[in-house]
Amino acid sequence: MIRGLWDRETVALLLLAALMPVALMWLWFGGIDAVARLALALVVSGAWHGVFMLARAQPPSLAGALAALAVAMLAPEDLGLFRLVLGISFGAVFGELVFGGWGRNVVNPATVTLAFLGFGFPAFPWPEFVAPVAWAAIPAAALGIALGVMPFGVVAGATAVAGLALAAGADLGPVLPVAGLVLVLLVCDPVASAATPLGRWLNGALYAALVLVFAAGWAGAAPVQVCVAAALLASLAAPLLDEAAIALWLQQRRRRHGRP
């Protein structure tokens, strides 16, 4: 018998490769400050993976680096060492590791970290991104879809809803580029998003719709805050969307065959 290569670590590695345009662009413009934040996130995330490896015999995963990258890019600024470490630890442990590691978690650990930091320390300013970093989300999404590790339906659903809104005259302003970044960094996690084709379209559409609603109605919220909240709710709704898609599939099948 022979064995293929699409196991968990291959997917994590390819996701990391797909995010390289965004990561490199951000490091290029962020300078030494960005490097320090990424190093801190990697060290804290890696340490927790090490702890769970020793205490619970869970193999460490490269997915920890994915979460670390997202946190380093999107976390509020000037938090200070203690708050940042606390947030990353909370996200890594309660978002992923207590469930048994990447592949068994419900929500992306970076989303948990960012929601925790955002709601726990609301006084700190959220980061802003220069245009090239936001543009880099497009090649990242294209790479991820071409490599088959990012769900096409999520990107397509979000793009469709955003396109419709723009055509209808909605003014997203500074939210749009950040929404694209958050889409590739958080929402397109294959584990935390929906897994059926229809569910994925719905998941992407829901994310974009939530961004639109929050952008229009959430006075005083920063673009990253809006997008992270939308990503959190969209990924919490993913199992429900999957369940709906499967129920629809079963119903079609019953109609066609008169049996499940």
Binding site: G4, W6, V11, P59, G103, G148, V149, V191, A195
Partner: peptide
């Protein structure tokens, strides 16, 4: 001790099922 290993949804997995059923479910 971490068996069964988690399966990550990817395009390869969906094609391996031939699109016949919701493969992750």
């Amino acid at each position: 001790s971490a068996l069964p290993r988690p399966v990550i949804p990817s395009a390869a997995l969906h094609q391996a099922a031939g699109g016949a059923f919701p493969v992750m479910a």
